[in-house]
Design a binder for these strands. Structure first.
Lengths: 278, 278
DNA sequence: TTCAGTTATGTAGCAAAACTACAAATATAT
DNA sequence: ATATATTTGTAGTTTTGCTACATAACTGAA
């Protein structure tokens, strides 16, 4: 889900069909003109039919022509310097670190743009009235789950985190109405996690998934919060999704604290006070 | 051709008629939502009729609603828009979440600017030749330590994480030459952690501190990497420092992987392969 | 080659969006 | 109070993005 839609088009150019690639090339060469064009105008200059434009849009990962334009406008506002910043073997430690940080920043900027589309109000409402919160994740997401638990318990809500398949399944088996399970997974593909959440939901629990909306996990969830920065194929950068998940849970926690008002405020300031040094 | 349409709207607000000013205020408060709205939707929430929206657009100097949206998208891409506002009790979940994320982004941007001043090369060198890495942190930083451990072991270096005072002290007591201890602490004030790192260092270990360079912990460390985004006094402020620490360790890990070259690459891809789904 | 099955592309039509013309309502001046 | 100007909304038109379906172009096996 990249704001650098032009990069994405370029990268996918050879996986597209002939007509769609024609569109792609035209867009890459005249992105600023596309912004002021309608589908039919673009269809004429690219030499294809109108539906092809729409299919092209979907192929490069946006919902339609409207969103394609939105992405182009956004892309063209960005400084070039954020482009092409993959770490390579010649980089010094400082260069490499800078690039990694830029990529992380970029992932959060992307995430921030998604926020208005996410069902946060519904998530907050479910959590505000929950009997308990259970955060589940495997591998790196397990650590995110633990972090979330560590953060949400301060609001005075019973919280726990589960980070291995067995425990997640057992938890799901005894879940009931009023429980809110938060499943964290970048890919949303792990069969055990998907099974567990399906089970929890059958048992009456609310399941909130932080994942890719097209993943199996999303199908089982009551609420899906999209959190799926594209992980680079680059070997060295498997960490953007983790950061995005953490930041999103931060945001949720604050929203939840606001929703719970007074009670949360008291619990929060107590847990802050106890950490003073003298 | 002003890219900052929001500024323009704000400036013209008092020259507009009552209904048009209503629209202007709504747009200023929810610019991101307007991007995904149609005229009729905006008309409803602003409490005016559809043509008023178009007249408003023209009043602020664009040709129509379409261009207004274009300008908004462009405006919101500008980095200045990420200057943070504080969360307050009137915010909706989405507004609050947006603000929290903006603050996190800002913290990382600050951190990125610090990167060239940090002794990363030295840290990488120490880690590259280490007998083992020990990550230590208390509370929220403990989770960062665990995350780091989870990340660095993939490079094929013996790693562990310690997250409570007793264990940290014991580890420090048996530390020796070749061990690298990484202490993670926002304030750098916790007496137990400071004592433990002083002890580890006396025993010959290298101590890398991710903390405030003016803190006691920094004095005891062999290397200090500054990682100290100002925590807000605001009750609802999330832990930006946690995010910054994670991102910085991500960066360090990548730099370290590069430094170790071939060996790390093999270990990394092995630990990725084992996680495939079928 | 031929022919089924698949993929790619286009035609025609629809629903929603942006926009316009005009009339009603409101404010302002005499 | 009346006339004039300004502001706002109603109803209708045009444009736009999109969908359903049909046709064309490939692909691979007999």
């Amino acid at each position: 889900m990249t704001a650098y839609i032009l990069d994405r088009i370029e990268g996918q150019l050879d996986t597209l069909s002939r007509s769609e690639a024609d569109v792609g090339r035209w867009v890459l060469e005249h992105p600023r003109q596309v912004i002021d064009q309608s589908i039919s105008e673009l269809a004429v200059v690219a030499g294809v039919s109108e539906p092809t434009i729409i299919r092209f849009s979907r192929s490069v990962g946006v919902s339609g022509f409207r969103e394609l334009k939105t992405r182009l406008i956004a892309n063209l506002q960005r400084p070039e310097s954020y482009l092409h910043h993959d770490v390579d073997a010649q980089d010094s430690a400082i260069d490499a670190a800078g690039k990694v940080l830029e990529r992380s920043i970029w992932a959060l900027v992307e995430l921030r743009e998604q926020i208005p589309k996410q069902p946060l109000e519904a998530a907050v409402e479910a959590m505000a009235t929950a009997r308990q919160l259970v955060f589940s994740g495997l591998g790196a997401s397990g650590i995110v789950a633990e972090d979330a638990c560590h953060k949400f318990f301060r609001l005075g809500i019973p919280c726990s985190s589960t980070v291995d398949s067995q425990t997640i399944l057992q938890r799901a088996a005894i879940a009931g109405v009023g429980d809110v399970h938060v499943a964290i997974s970048h890919t949303g593909q792990w069969p055990d996690l998907v099974r567990a959440m399906a089970l929890a939901r059958r048992n009456g629990a609310t399941v909130i998934a932080l994942t890719d909306p097209r993943a199996p996990l999303a199908e089982q969830a009551s609420l899906v919060i999209e959190c799926h920065p594209p992980e680079d194929t680059n070997l060295y950068t498997p960490m953007c999704s983790r950061l995005a998940q953490l930041a999103l849970l931060d945001a949720l926690q604050v929203a939840l604290a606001l929703a719970r008002g007074e009670a949360a405020e008291v619990a929060l300031s107590r847990s802050k006070d106890v950490l003073r040094y003298r």
